[in-house]
C-alpha cells in the first residue's frame, strides 16, 4: 500500500489526538504552544497533500500504465 496514504491517514489521527490533548488540562502553556505548532504544521501538510495531489485516471494495459479517459474508452 502506498506509504503517503498511511501518513495522511495517520496525520488525521494525529490531528485528532493533538486536539484532544490541547483541550485537556494536562499541558503547561509551553507544552500547549508546542502542540499547537505541531498540529498546525500537520494540518498544513495535510492540506498541501490534498491540494497538490495530481488528478490521475490511469488504465493498466498489460504492464504499461496509460492515462485513461471515458471518451477514449467509449470509442473502443
Amino acid at each position: 500500500m502506498a506509504e503517503k496514504k498511511i501518513s495522511f491517514e495517520e496525520s488525521m489521527v494525529k490531528l485528532e489526538k493533538i486536539a484532544d490533548e490541547l483541550e485537556g488540562d494536562n499541558l503547561t502553556l509551553d507544552e500547549s504552544v508546542k502542540k499547537f505548532e505541531e498540529g498546525m504544521k500537520i494540518s498544513k501538510k495535510c492540506k498541501e497533500i490534498l491540494d497538490n495531489a495530481e488528478k490521475k485516471i490511469t488504465v493498466l494495459v498489460g504492464e504499461v500504465e496509460k492515462d485513461f479517459s471515458i471518451n477514449s474508452s467509449t470509442e473502443e
Binding site: E16, I18, A19, L22, S32, M40, K47
Partner: peptide, 16 residues
C-alpha cells in the same frame, strides 16, 4: 476532509 482539518485548526486555536 478540508472542513475536518479546519475544525481541528479551530479547536487548536480555541484551546490555546
Amino acid at each position: 476532509v478540508k472542513k475536518n482539518i479546519e475544525i481541528y485548526e479551530n479547536r487548536y486555536k480555541n484551546s490555546l
